[in-house]
Design a binder for these strands. Structure first.
Lengths: 149, 149
DNA sequence: CGAGGATCGTCAGGGATCCTGACGGAATCT
DNA sequence: AGATTCCGTCAGGATCCCTGACGATCCTCG
């Protein structure tokens, strides 16, 4: 416990996590928009979770923590804009697999270096050891905070 | 780590930040709901940013990264449910200060120990040094990722 | 002092997001 | 086979959030 300072209340860890998360998200979405990929926040949150070999709607919904209905609508939008495509799931007749389409892969290819750049900026600000420690701590924290892990 | 998922690359740092953030948020909101404080996600994001001595709508909007109009509507909802109140800003005739009302302080008093509990769980999982290092890194990261800091 | 410009909060209107409930079709369990 | 669970969709509605425009107030500068 750190001492309470009346003029500078320590924000809770949740808020501290939120700032860089939101910053990274904004940077990526801005870069995508400038390149002509108009993707909303909600769409992006689903899109980034589409696995290379395809994902089921139910899985995407669970990971993004929205209902199947919401995920279905978002996939509809992404499909209309050619970011993803739906194919039958060969292993389950009820399901369909959502996969990245060509345009979705283009967007992903554009987003990756932006993420890398931002992470590099963070590493510069924190120092390499601290950045490594941060990622290590977060990775271990995921074990108890990601219900899907 | 298992080799069962060939596509299980390291998630980007943004996603790693998101898991614990969302987990903490859910825990707090669930606890509040169980105690009869029905607060939505969007309302909570504004409510937790209300300063003890009152905040202006414009400031709340900037911090929560929504428009003034959205913030205004959320404050309306919170005010209707007696979580906050609006008082004239003595230093500016245009502005009004949004302050926690009695019910809002009750909710805050309930939320605080929940946050503390979750943070303690994290510290147990990570070990005290790692938890301290995590908070230190996040605090420094805030310097370059919180446009409001 | 008074005009111009910036800021504060609100109104109006509309689109995006997300939910509960219910359902048919397919897989799985007994 | 029958019962149950799981997958995705339809229907309807609430919430969230935005752009644009506006009156009121504050502030600066001639």
């Amino acid at each position: 416990m750190t001492a309470e300072r009346p003029d500078a209340v320590e924000p809770n860890t949740g808020l501290l996590l939120f700032y860089p998360y939101r910053a990274l998200e904004s940077r990526v979405l801005t870069a995508l928009a400038e390149a002509g990929f108009e993707i909303t926040l909600a769409q992006a949150r689903l899109l980034q979770r589409v696995a290379d070999d395809g994902s089921r709607l139910t899985d995407l919904a669970a990971q993004a923590q929205v209902t199947k209905q919401t995920a279905g609508e978002l996939v509809d939008q992404l499909q209309r804009r050619r970011y993803v495509e739906r194919v039958p799931d060969p292993s389950d007749g009820r399901a369909r697999l959502i996969r990245l389409a060509a345009r979705g892969r283009e967007a992903a290819a554009l987003a990756a270096p932006v993420v890398a750049t931002v992470e590099a900026e963070w590493a510069t600000h924190l120092g390499p050891e601290s950045m490594t420690a941060l990622r290590a701590a977060l990775t271990r924290l995921r074990e108890i905070t990601d219900p899907w892990a």
